[in-house]
Design a protein around this nucleic acid. Sequence first.
DNA 1: CGTTACTTGAAACGTTCATTTGAATTGGCC
DNA 2: GGCCAATTCAAATGAACGTTTCAAGTAACG
Lengths: 208, 208
Amino acid sequence: MAADTKDRLIDAALALFAERGFGQVTIQDIAKRAGANIAAVNYHFGDKARFHAEVIRTQLDRRSGPPPELADVPDDPAAALTAFVTWFLRRICGPANEAPLQHILMHEQVHPGESPVLDEIVERVMRPQHDRLAEVVAALLPSDASPDTIRRFTFSVISQCVSYKHAWPVMKRLHPELELDDTELAAIADHVSRLCLAGLAAERDRHA
Amino acid sequence: MAADTKDRLIDAALALFAERGFGQVTIQDIAKRAGANIAAVNYHFGDKARFHAEVIRTQLDRRSGPPPELADVPDDPAAALTAFVTWFLRRICGPANEAPLQHILMHEQVHPGESPVLDEIVERVMRPQHDRLAEVVAALLPSDASPDTIRRFTFSVISQCVSYKHAWPVMKRLHPELELDDTELAAIADHVSRLCLAGLAAERDRHA
DNA sequence: CGTTACTTGAAACGTTCATTTGAATTGGCC
DNA sequence: GGCCAATTCAAATGAACGTTTCAAGTAACG
């Protein structure tokens, strides 16, 4: 069964890439997990790089578009920002098998493969999320706020979230008792939202 | 001359590790750059992992202690926070050969080698920086602020800085015209400082 | 001068992977 | 059933690296 093996390979790779990232996963790992032969990857996808791109592309096709939570509160920017932070933080800090795509993206972000796969990821997932968040941020800024200002605030929101994934090994050493369970994630989301909303309010005051 | 080759190896490795990170540098690269033989690393340091640790340890011995900029304004927490952000952002976003240690730390943060080298880095460089910043943050919070609150604000400050290094490939794609030159770095430092100060002020108001 | 310890150099070794090969197997189709 | 293309499998190939080996060179010291 052709499609069967292909699908099992993609599923296995998805999980492993999300957990460890492209470079830390061997074809043997994937084949073993998928219950397939080592040569299956090269037969179906050509080589590892194209396979990697295909896995990501498949997942991009499956789920795309901006976060649903943001559509719920279109007329309350402050609530929308809080919703985004809560949603985003949970995705990237939760278990890798829950939102494999976001975890792969986090790996890609740090290990920009030279292939155009990162371009595709940015355009199809990150830019929609970023632009939607930028709209929310812009709605919380003076109407004459510069694009640079909007960008910096938007990055501030995202940065604080992604660091809890990227810099986790260091954070854990600095505060060994820290655990990213549901309550802590909620507290962090609350903190980040309030911090950014306060900063946005201060920026409004400056131009008043 | 023994020490000569050893020093040249360490210098070469320092530069390369700062640029690309441990995993992306081969012993041949280092030997070539140092003008030494391939076997020199194994002869002088045992193996690649111990060499890596030794390089970092040497650099840790050379410069250590909290950022000097923070000592200048001990009685003005707001100015101290701004000084820290400006100093930190410049170090990690500037060219790798200017503050190689900070760049290596950034790589280690994302690639936690299983060795105890990250523990050493955290204890000797990151924790002093972190604790000093936490003091500044605490001085800007109500005196009864919880350790969790202090921690979250401290992480917020650091996160926004390090993301400009870690997530740069994505940021650059989202905003191709963006360049991290001196003026932009200054603007970002200004933005981050003000954002955090506003958040801290808001937290003070909540408990008043 | 000669011995000894230390250092360097070139080549070889062993391992880990991705990738290829070619034979076996399967499944559809007449 | 028998042919044909697609797929699977075990084994081989080859490249990239870290590591080891051992002969050659060098300097300190008697």
